[in-house]
């Protein structure tokens, strides 16, 4: 089944009014879409991240599905325990990790790798705002080259980790990238993932107005431009076979970069350099798409 705009409106999400998110929060938009695709028979495990706050403080909650908050490094292991416990009582529930990029590519990578190796039947979602936002914008292993954060005031010097490929190398049955700028591509990846047995990893680019420094009404536009400038390619790897799911609209990288204050100090020459790296990765993906298996 493919989810269309008509379906999406009717699907009950697990996101209620009263959240504590910033206006224009991409992570929140991502959650709204994902919870509609997954439905109410879903349990969310959330490590320390912006979403610990977004869900609203006790005794209130903006989330209508069961949600358990766990320590920063532990989400994938906790979800493994939940899934195994349900297995002993034959309970079929979507067990989902909802983690930020720091909780995924940095402090949580060990537990994530272990759960992926064990092929736990869970969906691990990294909503990626490309820095530690909860603690006030510090770099993470997902922060892009040259981006300003409070711990990289002169711009980050390293490339981010390629987390979806790291997960693909674990030979899990499903890996996908997504962006809140392409909501139907996103929800349909979850629609697919919930029907696959084993470990699923979905990495959602989730623009963050305060962290990336762009106007709050431009979240969807930034998410779209990330894809259309090849900065954030959308693809999926199903049983080792890679497929590019959205063809970018061939926009210059500059359009994406210049929308955001975090790249304020970057020169035009540096954008050209960055574009070269981005296009190399794109060509590599096209090459991978032609091969029988990525891993």
């Amino acid at each position: 089944m493919t989810i269309t705009i008509h379906d999406l409106r009717k699907l009950p999400g697990s996101y209620m009014p009263g959240s504590a998110a910033c206006p224009g929060c991409g992570a929140t938009l991502a959650f709204r879409l994902v919870s509609r695709a997954l439905g109410p028979n879903t349990v969310y495990i959330v490590p320390a991240c912006c979403f610990s706050v977004i869900q609203a403080p006790y005794p209130k909650s903006a989330i209508s599905a069961p949600l358990y908050n766990i320590a920063f490094a532990a989400a994938a292991a906790t979800a493994s325990g939940v899934y195994r416990a349900y297995k002993t009582v034959n309970k079929d529930v979507n067990v989902v990790v909802w983690a930020g990029d720091g909780g995924t590519v940095d402090i949580g990578i060990q537990a994530l790798s272990g759960a992926a190796e064990r092929k736990e039947d869970i969906i691990y979602v990294c909503y990626d705002n490309e820095a530690y936002m909860n603690t006030g914008i510090q770099r993470s292993g997902a922060t892009p080259l040259k981006a300003w954060t409070k711990t990289t005031p002169a711009g980050k010097r390293e490339m981010p980790k390629d987390m979806p490929m790291i997960l693909a190398a674990h030979r899990v049955p499903y890996v996908a990238t997504a962006s809140v700028g392409y909501p139907f591509d996103l929800v349909n990846k979850f629609e697919k993932a919930k029907n696959i047995r084993g470990f699923k990893y979905i990495h959602i680019l989730s623009p963050c107005p305060p962290g990336w420094d762009f106007p709050v009404e431009k979240t969807a536009e930034v998410g779209k431009l990330a894809v259309d400038t090849y900065f954030w390619p959308l693809y999926e790897i199903e049983d080792g076979k890679l497929r590019i799911t959205v063809k970018p609209r061939k926009r210059p990288l500059k359009e994406f970069i210049r929308l955001q204050g975090r790249f304020r100090t970057i020169t035009d020459e540096e954008i050209d350099e960055l574009e070269k790296i981005v296009m190399e990765k794109w060509q590599f993906l096209e090459h991978l798409e032609k091969s029988e298996r990525v891993f």
């Binding site: 358990y68 292991a77 493994s80 064990r118």
Partner: peptide, 26 residues
């Protein structure tokens, strides 16, 4: 019983927490 061959003790306890939170003896 389900046996989870975790990759560390931090994960062992985190998995125990998940299982117990899901309602089974751990």
């Amino acid at each position: 019983a389900e046996y989870i061959r975790v990759e560390s003790e931090h994960s062992a306890m985190a998995a125990a927490i998940g299982a117990s939170a899901a309602g089974v003896r751990t």
